[in-house]
């Protein structure tokens, strides 16, 4: 029981990290119709900026602020300089251009920081473990990630459902032409939305730094899962991203934890472990296929 709880927490923690990435990706796609493969690069930029500032100053707050600022600033710069020219173009052009950005940023980071991974040390008060149940210690920092992710989700909900900007965003997602016809500066809105998406990706990167290693190409590793989340949760839907992310996070973690054990019942242990590991890494994609089979537009379609 305690083990299951711990694995669920692990799943939720992976889920909120994915959510932070998927929220930006789905917003950008839903509202601007742009497939942004370089979203993972923004995650990497946030992680590198925070890791570097943390190593230079030792300050958690400065690291957090610089990671967010770097990702958001570069995100908006990408939108302003490049993506603007691509809104009217074919998806293939967008994919090509943003794939080019991945190569550009990976090489840029390699030149600036080298190929070696950076490691971020946690401050004392975050580095321990607390007992969530008697006999079940859990790392404090992972709890912080979960809490922060859920707070961001709540904040996004308020922003999108309760504010004027959110209203424009929702309207932009469903009736783009009408919003423009009503005289809203849609270009400014696009830049802001893209900046927000970049900020969230950067935040995910900042938080991932101390847990994983910060290295070139870290964005692509997680980007694939993020796309799975976006597809499962329906393109353009924040709510879908939230539920999709938690679903993918929990399913992935639980499959990895339990499938080998279940298979051990029916076959030789080492074969079970090997097959189980293989099945578990396929599981998320099977889930996506299943969801698309039953609900081809995803779980929470944004455009009615």
């Amino acid at each position: 029981m305690a083990l299951l709880l711990e694995q669920l927490l692990n799943g939720v923690q992976l889920g909120v990290t994915l959510f932070l990435l998927a929220a930006g990706l789905t917003l950008v796609f839903g509202i601007m119709g742009v497939i942004n493969l370089a979203h993972g690069s923004l995650y990497m930029i946030g992680a590198f900026a925070a890791a570097w500032v943390a190593a230079q100053t030792g300050s958690v707050l400065l690291a957090l602020a610089s990671g967010l600022a770097a990702a958001a600033a570069i995100g908006m710069a990408i939108e302003y300089v490049m993506l603007r020219r691509l809104y009217a173009r074919d998806h293939l052009d967008q994919v090509l251009a943003t794939f080019g950005l991945i190569l550009f940023f990976n090489q840029g980071i390699t030149i600036l920081f080298g190929r070696q991974p950076l490691f971020v040390n946690l401050p004392e008060f975050l580095s321990g473990a607390v007992e969530i149940l008697p006999g079940v210690p859990y790392p404090v920092y992972r709890l912080v990630i979960i809490a922060a992710g859920l707070l961001v989700a709540l904040g996004l909900y308020v922003l999108i459902q309760r504010t004027r900007i959110g209203m424009l965003v929702r309207a932009g997602a469903t009736h783009r032409e009408m919003v423009r016809a009503l005289g809203v500066d849609i270009r400014l809105l696009y830049t802001l939305v893209f900046g927000l998406g970049a900020l969230l990706a950067g935040f995910a990167g900042v938080m991932a730094g101390p847990v994983y290693s910060v290295n070139v190409g870290m964005g692509e590793q997680i980007l694939i899962l993020t796309f799975v989340v976006v597809v499962i949760g329906s393109v353009g839907s924040i709510r879908g991203a939230m539920f999709g992310a938690l679903l993918v996070g929990i399913v992935d973690t639980l499959l990895r934890a339990y499938v080998p054990g279940l298979l051990r019942g029916v076959m030789d242990a080492s074969q079970a472990d090997m097959l189980g590991a293989g099945l578990a890494s396929m599981g998320v994609y099977l889930l996506m296929a299943l969801v698309l089979l039953l609900k081809p537009r995803g779980l929470f379609p944004a455009h009615a």
Binding site: L3, N10, P137, R142, V211, Y212, P260, A269, D273
Partner: peptide
């Protein structure tokens, strides 16, 4: 006997199993 992935970065699930 647990097989992780060669591109894995998060070992939380394995830590729980070890415990």
């Amino acid at each position: 006997e647990v097989y992780t992935r060669l591109d894995q970065t998060d070992y939380a699930a394995e830590m729980a199993q070890i415990r």
